[in-house]
Structure formats: C-alpha cells, structure tokens
C-alpha cells in the first residue's frame, strides 16, 4: 500500500467524520423537526459518502470496492425515501411547519 493512498484515505475519513459530527451537532442546534431533517441529510450524503470513498481507496479494484459501492448506493436510495416519508408523515400528522410565506400567495414561484 503506497503512502499517498493511505494519506488520501485518512483525509477522506477525517473529512467524513467531520461532516458526521456537524450533522449530529445540527440535530441539536436546529430548533424544529423539519430543519433537523436537513442536518441528518448532511451526515447521510457528505459523511457517509466521503468515508466510503476513503475506504474504497483502500479496497482497490476488488469485490470489497464493489460492496462499498453497493452500501453507498443503498444509502443514497434509502435516505431520501426515508426523509420524504418522515416529512410527509409529520406534515400529514399536522406537525406545525414554520415558514415565512405561503406558497399560495407567491405568484412567481408557482410558475
């Protein structure tokens, strides 16, 4: 294993860990459920993506990399589905949505 590859993996892992923690902190700093879903999506995309990318560098061209790609693909398919289902369920359940303007009043956005 070459040194440069190890360094690249380390950088990607640390960057991914950073985004994970940022998402976790956002989960606590945002004040409302709908905003927290955005913090969770940071960890699901940047955090997971960078970390798995770093592991792929170690795997090289092998089955391991293929499996890492599968994990990433499943995560990228499932996380928007879950996020959408959660938000729609919360919205349908009548959980208050704090917004600054209604979409109905907004002429240019509708077109």
């Amino acid at each position: 294993m070459s040194g440069a590859l190890d360094i690249a993996t380390a950088v990607l892992l640390v960057a991914g860990g950073f985004f994970c923690i940022v998402g976790g902190v956002g989960l606590h700093r945002f004040s409302e459920f709908y905003q927290r879903t955005h913090a969770a999506s940071v960890t699901d995309t940047a955090g997971a993506g960078l970390m798995l990318l770093g592991l792929m560098l170690q795997g090289g061209l092998s089955m391991v990399t293929l499996k890492l790609l599968l994990v990433l693909a499943f995560l990228l398919f499932s996380s928007p589905a879950i996020a959408h289902a959660l938000v729609k369920a919360a919205h349908g359940h009548g959980l208050e949505l704090e917004i600054e303007d209604e979409p109905g009043r907004d002429g240019d956005a509708a077109g």
């Binding site: 991914g16 994970c20 998402g23 976790g24 989960l27 459920f33 927290r36 879903t37 969770a40 960890t43 699901d44 955090g47 997971a48 970390m51 798995l52 592991l55 890492l68 994990v71 995560l75 996380s79 879950i82 959660l86 369920a89 919360a90 359940h93 959980l95």
Partner: peptide, 21 residues
C-alpha cells in the same frame, strides 16, 4: 415529537453501517 425520534434512530442506523464498514 415522535418524528424527531424516528429521524434520530434512522441516523443512528446509518452510522452503525458506517461503523461496521
């Protein structure tokens, strides 16, 4: 809310996947 909890548990699950990997 219950949705906060589900969101957090789902995030815990995806982090578990990363941890295992």
């Amino acid at each position: 809310t219950v949705f906060d909890r589900i969101l957090a548990v789902n995030m815990f699950g995806t982090k578990t996947v990363l941890l295992i990997a």
